[in-house]
Design a protein around this nucleic acid. Structure first.
Length: 403
RNA sequence: GGAGGGGUGGCCGAGCGGUCAAAGGCAGCAGACUGUAAAUCUGCCGGCGUCAGCCUACGUUGGUUCGAAUCCAACCCCCUCCA
């Protein structure tokens, strides 16, 4: 078993997939001030719950005395990570990347404490060193240490080649630059550990190898398992889109609901991975059976929402859930739709976003799925006279208010 | 460069002159049962509509035809085999 609190905690909570050198890492983590980083692409205006697995690694590191480094890939996003893709990703414009970067960074402040103190997290952007890189000096200093043979064996490259899918030289360089990032962070910030999802293993190892050859000998790597739900889907990808961390991409209510609707079988695992609740509390919650387990889901939703969106957001969502589901009222946190009364049900449904089209609204009315203030509405010509709670099915609700 | 095969709705995949808004599966939505869970069963699943109909869709652009996802031509892209 591990001696350091950090690794003990990660192991107990299910965060560890692979380690490059367990003993060395354990020793490094036992001393205070271990610096570790995770890199994030700026491909979207917000990170999503799929990124939470590694964000939690940084959080746990800080909780146990380490120094988290958030690396924003302002430079590498201009290239595009080929891992897990069969075709080149659409190249993003610099303006988009800059906007995404600005938007992404806000989310981290909820999970980590930033500052100038010894245990404070810092945020860096690899554009700072990548953008100005001069090709010939770079090739002479680093290129000679990078083995093409080895790179060709990397999954991200090999799979593309085996399937005879195109791989541009641009993308081929992604791992080179990610490897170089690690060396740069080791030099600038004394960073010894790179963490990431299991798909990043190859890239992480490349960085460690490069470090060994250019005078940063003791770099380490750690990956988290790919988190899937009990029914086998990648976590955080719903049909309606990703579950975003940023409030302007996904309202607090929906974020809370995402966690509240966790599969029974995932509750214990998610409590360990995505909340700070202590082990004995989690053990108590996951032992609940039947309808009782809903209490554990509420605890999960509250803890996860409080961490990402703040205590107040969690409280409001919980209160709204109670009002909406237990009392059949309309809680404050429900999405609001502004309409002019009297309004036809069909228009109200589309305005509230409960139906994607008028046709769908009509179909749902015919199916008996629509209720207004709790009463089933089936007539597509019905008009609603004033404010109230419009529901589609039992789960989706909106408050109609006068425009 | 040569010879074949193929590009169909979010995905997979049938259709190969009218009866095609296009079989089937997956995903999704809703109903029943429940616990805002899972499983199961049922219905729905391009848009608009006073439900008759209209519009948009089968790689792209033209053409043949009363009529084309289906035939022809050119172009773009993908796959297999040969050089």
């Amino acid at each position: 078993m591990y001696r350091s609190d950090f690794l003990q905690s990660l192991a107990a909570r299910g965060h560890i997939h692979q380690l490059t050198d367990a003993e060395a890492l354990d020793a490094a983590a036992a001393a205070p001030g271990l610096a570790a980083y995770v890199g994030y692409d700026c491909t979207a205006p917000s990170l999503h719950v799929g990124n939470l697995a590694t964000i939690m690694l940084l959080r746990r590191l800080q909780q146990h005395g380490g120094r988290p480094i958030v690396l924003l890939g302002g430079g590498t996003t201009r290239i595009g990570d080929p891992s897990g893709k069969d075709s080149q990703r659409q190249l993003l414009g610099d303006a988009t990347i800059a906007a995404n970067k600005a938007s992404i960074r806000t989310a981290f402040e909820r999970f980590l404490r930033f500052g100038d103190g010894p245990g404070d997290a810092i945020m860096v952007d690899n554009a700072d060193w990548l953008d100005g890189l001069a090709l010939i000096p770079f090739l002479r200093d680093y290129g000679r240490h990078l083995s093409v043979n080895r790179m060709l064996a990397q999954d991200s490259v090999r799979l593309r080649l085996e399937r005879e899918q195109p791989l541009s030289f641009l993308e081929f360089n992604y791992m080179v630059l990610q490897a170089y990032d690690f060396v740069e962070l080791a030099r600038r910030h004394g960073c010894r550990l790179q963490m990431g999802g299991s798909d990043q293993w190859g890239n992480i190892v490349q960085g460690i190898e490069l470090g060994r050859r250019v005078g940063c000998p003791d770099l380490l790597g750690l990956t988290t398992p790919l988190i899937t739900t009990a029914d086998g889907a990648k976590m955080g990808k719903t049909a309606r889109g990703a579950v975003w961390l940023n409030r302007d991409q996904l309202p607090d209510w929906d974020y809370w609901q995402f966690w509240r609707n966790t599969d029974d079988r995932d509750v214990g695992r998610f409590l360990r991975l995505f909340t700070d609740l202590p082990e004995d509390e989690i053990r108590r919650l996951e032992r609940l059976e039947g309808a009782e387990i809903n209490a554990a889901k509420v605890a999960l939703a509250n803890a996860a929402t409080a961490m990402c969106r703040g205590e107040e957001a969690a409280r409001q969502a919980e209160a709204t859930a109670r009002a909406t589901f237990a009392e059949g009222a309309a809680g404050d946190a429900l999405p609001e739709a502004r309409v002019h009364f009297p309004v036809g049900v069909v228009d109200a449904l589309t305005a509230a976003g409960l139906a994607a089209s008028r046709g769908e609204a009509r179909r749902k009315l015919a199916e008996g799925a629509v209720r207004f203030d709790g009463d089933v509405v089936t007539d597509p010509d019905a008009r609603l006279a004033g404010p109230g709670r419009l529901s589609l099915g039992r789960k989706r609700h909106a408050r109609l208010v006068a425009a």
